[in-house]
Amino acid sequence: MNELIRIQGLHSRMNSVEILKGIDLSVNSGESLALVGPNGAGKTTLLRHLNGLLKPSAGTVIVDGMDTRRAGASRFARLVGFLFQNPDHQIIAGSVRAEIEFGLVHTGIARDEHRDRVASASASLGLSKYLDADPFSLSRALRQRVALASVLALSPKVLVLDEPTSSQDERGAELIMKVAESLNASGTTIILVSHDMELIARFSKRVIVLVEGEVEADREVHATFRDERLLMKAGLSTLGAYRMASALGIAFEKSQPLTAATLAGRLGSMLAGANT
């Protein structure tokens, strides 16, 4: 695995306030990581440095060999796919189809590829029957998926998702994360910002905890959720399965996912084993 993103000594200022105070981060190609932390910690700011939307006031951000200081955001469009928190800031076309095609047109992807890309992006997010609809006639949840579809159509190497499931119900959230998961399986690097800890515990492999502009922790996902002190310090919620395991004094392997299913499985075998 090679290094795809390298951030060194990143400082970021906005309106004379320093938001990021020296971030060092290295992301390999194909990783699936989550960025968490309280509001105001600088998560969105950090994301915006990944495609050159924001330039460092100090330090460097190198994505796939390109220094973000040297190029504008549009140059990174095919490399870094960015899903914004508010889909309404992105949607601009009169039909879902045109919306998904927007990026294809502007990044100069060959015309004959458009139809297939639009079809597959919309199908994967359950939007096939809405292709001719006006995005603004759809619910907020569907609009969020439309925005995501238009980013996916570009087949970027890195997919940056800023609260992608915030407007979704359980089914929609599952759909989106399954898509992200399968993209990750075929090599796309995923960077996720979310407040939904359950989601992160299920889909991400690495968690970076950002507090007040600094990296508080950078660990494997399960190690993160086991550390109650860290979660409290970062103002994050603890997870049910972890709480229960801890209360019951059950230990798990460091990298074993802790979900209701795995916990119940372990309990089941403990109980069954004890009976023989």
Binding site: L239, G240, M244, A260, A261, L263, L267
Partner: peptide, 10 residues
Amino acid sequence: PAWMETVEIL
């Protein structure tokens, strides 16, 4: 919630 799922499986 996780606890409900766990109880259900058990």
